[in-house]
Structure formats: C-alpha cells, structure tokens
Design a protein around this nucleic acid. Structure first.
Length: 422
DNA sequence: TCTGGGGTCCTAGGACCC
DNA sequence: TCTGGGGTCCTAGGACCC
C-alpha cells in the first residue's frame, strides 16, 4: 500500500469556514474578531480565536473573553453554496474526491500527476484557485494516508500547506500533541496526560496492549497502528446514513406534558419527514433527555417493524420520554429533547404504516388509523414540496416556538453529511 | 448561570440460541 | 447432571467529529 512514489492523499480544509464567509460577505468584519451564533459560538474567526474564543463555547463566556467580539446570525445558505464551489474546484483535479463535511474533503491525486504535476504542486494550485475564485483560505495537508494528511492540514493552518514525504512520517509526528490524532478528544487526552503521554512520539513509544488497557480495544489499536503507519482507509465515496435524528435545546423548562408533547411533535415531524423524503423507515427509536447540569439519559426501543409516520414516531417517543422521566423523578426540569431513528431500511413512499406489535390495537395491519396516518403524511409532504415546510403542519407543531436556531442551520447540518447515492 | 444540531463508533451487560 | 464456548441482538451510556 505504501509503495514507492510520492504521497498522493490530500486533505483540504477551509479555515474558520463560517466566520471567514461572514468576513467575505461583509468587508467591515475583516480583521475583526467575529463569531457566528448567539447563545453558543458556532464558529470563530482567527481574530476571535486569539482571545480564546472557540466553537461550542457559550456566548456569554465568549463575550467575557473578547468584549469586542462581533456576533453575526449566520448566512447558512451561503455556506452551502461556497462549500460546493470549493468542491467543484477540487473536482477539477480528480474525480476521486471524498467530501467529509461542508468544509473539508480528501482527494487522491495518484492518477492526476501526469496532468497537473506533483501532489504538492496540485495542492498549491488548489489553494491559489480557491483563494482567487471563491475568496477563501484553504489549508492543505499531503501525505501517504488519510489520517496523516488530515493531521498535516491541521498543522498547516491557517492558510498553509504541509507535505509529509514518505519515510518522514515519524519525524513529522513525533513532536505533535496527541490531540491532533483523529479520535483523541478531551477525555482521551486527559487520560494520556495522566500517564505522562503528551506527544504522538510518546504515544508511539507506548506498547499497544497498554494503550488498549487504558483506552479500550478499538482506540488503543488505532493509536498503535498510527505509529506504525498502517492505515488502510482509502479515499472513497459516501455511505448511507445509519440514523436520522433531530434535537432542540429548551433552556430550562419544567418537565410539563404540554411542553414535552409539543416539542416531540416538532422533532418527530422533522425526523419522519426526512425519512419519508429519503424513502426510508427505521425500527429503532431513541430519545434523549438532558437535565440541568448537562447530565442526560437515553431510552430506546427496537420495534418489530420500521416506522416513518409522524404521529407514530411522536407517540413512541412520548412513551420513551415518559419512562426516562419516571426513572429520574428527582429531576424536575429539562434542557433538551432529542429523537432519532436508526436500523433504517428502504421503504417505498406509498407503503402504509405497519403495526407496531406491542398491543396497540389501533395500529394492526391495514387498520384504518395506520392508513389514515400514511395518507395524512403524504398529503403534508406534497403540500410542503410545493409551498415550503411552513405551509402546513400538525397543530402542535405550529405551536412550538422553542426553536432557537433558524431552520436554515438545521438544513445545513442535515445536508453537510448527506452523501450522494452510494 | 453550563452550551447547538447533525451525526458515528465503541463498550458492557443481559437475553437468547446453538 | 453440570458445564463450556461462541454468536447475535438489544439497551444504555459515553467519547468524539464537523
């Protein structure tokens, strides 16, 4: 796999993407600390990062660190468009592009060097074209494996290019902090630090069995493999999503039936609508309830039949949430509800809702209620396809004003990982 | 006064089957 | 009569990524 010849895997990663787009759209924001978001920081410009502002941070905390921080609501549709433009540029150099999110992608240019020059030259051209044609800075890492290319692009930031030559991998990795390894987050970093392991070099010197004992089989084996440069992952097209979900942060709310029911109806409406649009249904339904203090619990059930009807999903989710609350009766308030569906299977749009099989007589095969639910969903789907999703909905859905982020942001998050047919 | 919304993958225990 | 090992599915929780 790592034969002779240059390393040909590129990882292209747009710098501070959302914030950079805002600075592109509004010149007055250039050179200034900018954050996209409000209650929470979705993205921060480099000027803001210099103050310690980071994505995921609470808005009040960010303002504390950087009083001059400029908050902008976000132009989510533009993010999608500009991200697509960049991917178009990448596609000019090879069809072998694997987009892994809205702002980053892998390329394997092994078959393109006779046309465009060395991988490093291609990376330089990409950076220059993205800058000229789209107006954004993109950092690129070049290496023999995806994992290494991604680390290289992180090292290259901001607005840089780093090439890891074959045979030089360990020299490159040795001094880098462990958190640059994909899959090493705060928890793993802390565990490694407790053992005196701070750099990838120190990681490489640690026997794999010891890492596995510390971090579990899978993570330990992966980190061990990184040190020996065994990384079989190839650049590839997308996979189908394994689950579809939605969540909404509520602030602090009393766990009242009306709030819960309305919120679950809204979430089920989004999830089931997306399932039907994709011609899918799922057997496993999972809910998550978060309490003040960030503690959360999940409850799930695997049904004998897949479901995609909004009302059925709402009812099952409501039962699961009720159970979770009953098991945590000391918690009087909740801060978030989530619904997701997995175990997905293809299901033609016209298929009727099937029985759930746990004693709900109303939902037996071919029952009038099952048929009615499918008919209602199909009617709603058709109206929305023509007039937009706000045009029609269940009454309880229309009531949910809990939404704190614009629908455009949800749609962007939904589509970011959406893959072409695979 | 604890922070968004979309996901993936891993682990561990229990049930159940062969 | 007691005991063994392996596999799969389900549930709950947690870490992590963009």
């Amino acid at each position: 796999m790592s034969g002779p010849g240059p390393a040909t895997i590129l990882h292209a990663d747009l710098d501070a993407f959302y914030a950079s787009v805002e600075q592109l759209l509004d010149p007055r924001l250039r050179g200034k600390p900018v954050a996209v978001g409000g209650g929470v920081v979705l993205a921060a410009s480099y000027e803001a990062k210099a103050f310690g502002v980071a994505a995921g941070m609470a808005g009040w905390r960010a303002r504390q660190l950087c009083p001059k921080l400029r908050f902008v609501a976000g132009h989510f549709r533009q993010y999608q468009q500009l991200g697509d433009q960049v991917v178009d540029v990448l596609g000019h150099y090879t069809p072998n592009v694997e987009r892994i999110s809205i702002d980053e992608a892998f390329l394997d240019v092994a078959g393109s060097t006779h046309l465009f020059g060395s991988p490093a030259a291609i990376a330089a051209q990409i950076r220059s074209r993205v800058r000229d044609e789209v107006g954004l800075a993109v950092s690129v890492g070049v290496a023999g494996t995806k994992h290494l290319a991604k680390i290289a692009s992180q090292v290259a930031k901001p607005d840089g290019l780093v090439v890891v030559e074959r045979g030089r991998e360990l020299d490159f990795l040795r001094p880098l902090p462990v958190e640059l390894v994909w899959g090493v987050g705060p928890a793993t970093r802390a565990q490694l630090a407790a053992k005196g392991i701070h750099t990838i070099g120190e990681l490489a010197a640690t026997p794999t069995p010891l890492l596995q004992g510390l971090l579990g089989q899978a993570v330990g084996a992966k980190l061990g493999a990184l040190a020996t440069d065994r990384d079989p992952r190839r650049v590839q097209g997308g996979r189908r999503a394994a689950s579809v979900g939605a969540q909404v942060a509520l602030g602090r709310r009393w766990a009242e039936p009306d709030v819960i029911r309305g919120t679950l109806a809204y979430l089920a409406d989004r999830v089931a609508g997306r399932l039907r649009a994709a011609g899918q249904a799922g057997r496993t339904i999972t809910v998550r309830v978060r309490f003040p203090g960030m503690r959360s619990v999940t409850r799930s059930i695997t049904l004998p039949r897949p479901v995609s009807a909004t009302l059925t999903l709402t009812e099952v989710a409501a039962e699961l949430v009720a159970g979770a609350l009953a098991d945590n009766s000391s918690e009087r308030q909740i801060t978030l509800l989530a619904v997701s569906v997995s175990h997905l299977v293809g299901q033609p749009a016209v298929q009727l809702e099937l029985p759930l099989g746990f004693g709900d007589e109303r939902l037996r095969p071919g029952s009038e209620i099952g048929a009615a639910r499918s008919a209602v969903d199909q009617a709603v789907d058709r109206v929305r396809a023509r007039f937009g999703r706000e045009a029609v909905g269940y009454a309880t859905v229309a009531l949910s004003d809990e939404r704190r982020v614009p629908d455009e942001f949800r749609e962007l998050a939904e589509s970011s990982l959406a893959q072409p047919e695979g």
